[in-house]
């Protein structure tokens, strides 16, 4: 057998293996999707069976679930909080990072290490005191939560922006300043356009985190403003009685926007996540 035919056989074997694994990976999502059209009684008794004439309920679960947890309102809160928090994180941390990278003093060095340290600390360390303070300062609403997300996102954002700014030659900024540009003009017209790739990475990482975050919105605004994860967990009810039909439908609605968004932007998302992991 020549090397080429051997390589061909190997490629066929790998392709078959990959196809099987791909089916295994998509299966959980498809099973949830399939069950979202079955009447709730049959979801726990035959979860892996296709809907039949007897078990099929159409979109009844969707109607029931969306009504129970006010899904579209939750979607609105999630979208609002994620969009504005991500924008605020990118804007404020790029500015902070430029300052602490270009101005060298005891203060900026201290702030830098404090920000890096905050990336390590688990949320449980601050959750109780943070939610009490948020309450006292009246940050317990969708707008106030943005302040909290900027605070928790400041570490990674500043760290990554700062890492990139260090690689930009100073001469460009100095030339702009000598030409009479003020520091804000220099930042927004010279520095910020160069930060674009890092800004995209930070935006992606923060969007994934904030969209899916459960505990922070639950503890601060959970009773009044339920984001999607909080609303879904709320379906559990007080004594563990779960309407699995409504649950399946809401899981589909929760996943659908992310998956559609992902299919269009997957290259950026994967590149962003790799960049974030390697530099963070």
């Amino acid at each position: 057998m020549s090397i080429r035919t051997r390589t061909n056989y190997l490629h066929i074997a790998i392709s078959i293996l990959l196809a099987l694994l791909a089916i295994l990976f998509v299966a959980p999502i498809l099973i949830v999707f399939m069950n979202s059209f079955k009447s709730k009684l049959f979801i726990s008794s035959e979860p892996f069976a296709f809907p039949t004439a007897e078990t099929f309920t159409g979109y009844a679960n969707y109607v029931e679930g969306a009504k129970k947890i006010n899904f579209f309102k939750a979607f609105g809160y999630s979208l609002f909080i994620t969009t504005f928090s991500v924008a605020a994180v990118v804007a404020t941390t790029s500015m902070l990072a430029w300052y602490i990278t270009r101005v060298k003093s005891l203060f900026t060095t201290f702030i830098y290490y404090l920000l890096v340290f905050s990336m390590i600390v688990p949320f449980q360390m601050v959750m109780f005191t943070m939610s009490k303070i948020a309450n006292m300062l009246h940050l317990d609403n969708p707008v106030g939560v943005i302040v909290l997300y900027v605070g928790f996102g400041a570490g990674l954002g500043s760290f990554m922006f700062s890492g990139f700014i260090k690689t930009i030659p100073l001469s460009l900024e100095e030339a702009a300043l000598i030409d009479g540009a003020t520091p804000p003009q220099t930042f927004f017209q010279v520095v910020l356009p160069m930060l674009k790739p890092t800004a995209i990475t930070i935006a992606i990482l923060n969007a994934m985190w904030i969209w899916n975050d459960y505990l922070l919105p639950y503890l601060t605004i959970g009773t009044e403003y339920k984001t999607i994860p909080v609303a879904i967990q709320y379906l559990r009810g007080g004594y563990g009685a779960v309407d699995m039909g409504a649950m399946m439908a809401m899981l589909v609605l929760a996943m659908l926007p992310i998956i559609i968004f992902y299919l269009f932007t997957q290259r950026y998302i994967i590149e962003g996540v790799v960049a974030g992991a390697v530099k963070g």
Binding site: A91, T92, T93, M95, L96, W98, Y99, I100, I111, L114, L115, S118, V121, V126, T129, M130, I133, A134, L137, L139, V147, L148, Y149, V150, G151, F152, A154, G155, G157, S158, P183, F187
Partner: peptide, 16 residues
């Protein structure tokens, strides 16, 4: 440049 991010950081992380 410093105050917006730093204030949020102090409220959400440092003080808690």
């Amino acid at each position: 440049f410093v105050v917006p991010a730093l204030i949020c950081f102090i409220i959400a992380f440092l003080v808690p």
